[in-house]
Design a protein around this nucleic acid. Structure first.
Length: 503
RNA sequence: GGCCCAUUCGUCUAGUGGUUAGGACGCAAGAUUUUCAUUCUUGAAACAGGAGUUCGAUUCUCCUAUGGGCUGCCA
């Protein structure tokens, strides 16, 4: 609550690829920092050594970079509060845990995992679905509160494995004001004696997160709603250390589009949309599709994500990162979970494609097609077909006849309009073109109108035939612009080959 | 089961103690177009239910229902 400079962190766990819910949490942290002239940092929470997945940390950093969510401190970046990977901070945590034990805020517990499992199982048999190590049950367990002091001392010196558990106070209401939800209150009788320090010498999330947030001078903790139930316990920890408590904001979850429940990594490929920012391959060779590889622009992805749970209160829907940085406030983040909508995501992408210059699209098109056409030519292709594309790759498909000469014609698409006199008509039209030196769209259109007027025919009776011969398609952009783009020689050639296929 | 959180069109959401409850996606119709796409116009579509407070509640309170999260030596 102090006046100190805003510092926020995104603290992912490297247990796999970062999914879009995580990206959104990172984004809101980033935007909050930017809006408040603060600092956004990344901290890797890898205190669970058994769940470490190689490549995950690199994936996270690459994904954030792709999105333009750039931390000013973090692994591989540096900063004066490092290291930013918790496993590299390992030696720092034990003294804090010990401090809590000395101050009677925590205690040693010697119960093994097997013993705990047995107790839980027995409780379940007696109709208690969830046994907790808490203020009442701890007195019948093996810990420094129940064992004689000399035995505790002997066990520790003996090297017996132990954990350090928080000594949850009895019947105390913990209240805090969440920036999104308002006042939240929990009684400590409903909280258990969480393990703070594990027998493998690593802290749990609960300890590490408090210690690091304090040491890194984090002022606002913006994280997923799944942390809401443990927030009171975290507050108790800050108080136990005598530290300032940061502000909290618990973001609503991202829900799956069908049914209910939170969006999971399986939903994407099952429902046909990406859940991850980038492609990810599991050790087993299983692939999860990413937005980047699907052809989404990072700006569109980010814009969509920003609006999943936040809105500016105006009718503006298209926001650049810069605009988001200016407009974002935590107060305008909603409380309820948001179902992800793949259609809306496509719409955003389409909008961004529409607003990307032909020049830039041409470069992308060149990259994905390896076309031999000049950038200038490709620019025209983009100009002609971008209105009917969502992704750059759609331009290559929609405009394939601009990039390549059609090799096959499907006569079925035109057969209904292809009357007896069609070959004759097209041959005459070809003759008109042959005599043309001015192959600009406007001029060709004028000549075409002259041609059909002479014949007393309507546009619809003639143009589709020409379109078919030139493009092999029944629909598409303006035929005269296409003709100009292709040029006289190519047009004449295509009329010939098209005519051959038409009967 | 316990605890916590949430609930406005199908979806994302705006909104106020008195509004024709607004916008966007999607959907439908129409206009434009040689055509498809685009664009434009129009339309259908919502305050979970019940009490209470109030002259008046979508808005405030409580209850119910529904949904979600948490309930590990995971984060």
């Amino acid at each position: 609550m102090s006046e100190s400079k805003v510092r926020v962190r995104f603290a992912p766990s490297p247990t796999g690829p970062l999914h879009m819910g995580g990206v959104r949490t990172a984004l809101y942290n980033y935007l909050f920092a930017k809006k408040n002239n603060g600092t956004f940092l990344i901290r890797i929470e890898d205190t669970d050594q058994t769940r470490f997945v190689p490549g995950a940390q690199e994936y996270i950093m690459e994904a954030l970079t792709w999105c333009g969510i750039l931390p000013t401190e973090g692994p591989g970046i540096g900063g004066e509060y490092g290291p930013y990977v918790q496993s590299e901070r390992k030696p720092m945590y034990r003294p804090y845990a010990e401090e809590l034990v000395e101050n009677d805020k925590a205690y040693y517990a010697f119960d093994t995992a097997e013993e705990l499992d047995a107790v839980r199982e027995a409780a379940k048999q007696m109709g208690m679905p969830n046994w907790q190590y808490n203020t009442v049950t701890r007195m019948s367990m093996k810990n420094s509160l129940t064992l004689p002091a000399d035995e505790v001392k002997r066990k520790i010196e003996n090297g017996d494995p132990y954990v350090i558990r928080m000594k949850m106070p009895r019947n105390q209401d913990v209240r805090f004001e969440d920036m999104i939800r308002g006042w939240v209150s929990v009684n400590t009788n409903n909280l258990d004696d969480k393990v703070l320090f594990k027998s493998d010498g690593m802290p749990t999330y609960h300890l590490a997160n408090i210690v690091d947030d304090h040491l890194m001078k984090i002022t606002h903790v913006i994280r997923g709603e799944e942390w809401l139930p443990s927030a009171p316990m975290h507050i108790l920890l800050y108080e136990a250390f005598g530290w300032d408590v940061p502000n909290f904001a618990h973001l609503p979850l991202l829900l799956r589009p069908d049914g209910n429940g939170k969006l999971s990594k399986r939903d994407g490929d099952r429902l046909g949309f990406p859940v991850f920012p980038l492609d990810w391959y599991t050790a087993e060779g299983e692939k999860y599709t990413g937005y980047r590889e699907e052809g989404y622009f990072p700006e569109a992805f980010v814009n969509m994500l920003a609006f999943l749970g936040w809105n500016p209160g105006t009718n503006q829907e298209l926001f650049s990162m810069k605009e988001l940085e200016e407009a974002f406030t935590i107060e305008r983040v909603g409380k309820a979970g948001a179902k992800f909508d793949a259609d809306k995501t496509k719409w955003y992408q389409q909008q961004y494609l529409r607003h990307t210059s032909d020049e830039e699209l041409a470069k992308e098109l060149k990259n994905i097609t390896n076309s031999h056409l000049s950038l200038e030519k490709l620019e025209t292709v983009c100009h002609l077909v971008k209105d009917r594309a969502t992704f750059v790759k759609d331009i290559a498909v929609e405009g394939s006849y601009l990039l390549y000469t059609p090799e096959e014609y499907d006569f079925n698409i035109i057969s209904k309009k292809w009357k007896e006199d069609a070959p004759q008509l097209m041959t005459e039209w070809k003759a008109v073109l042959e005599n043309e030196t001015d192959f600009t769209a406007a001029h060709l259109e004028a000549k075409f109108k002259e041609f059909i007027t002479e014949k007393s025919l309507g546009i619809g009776q003639v143009l589709p035939l020409y379109r078919y011969l030139i493009t092999g398609a029944a629909a598409g952009p303006n035929m005269f612009e296409i003709s100009e783009f292709l040029g006289k020689e190519e047009c004449l050639n295509r009329i010939d080959s098209g005519l051959k296929s038409a009967h």
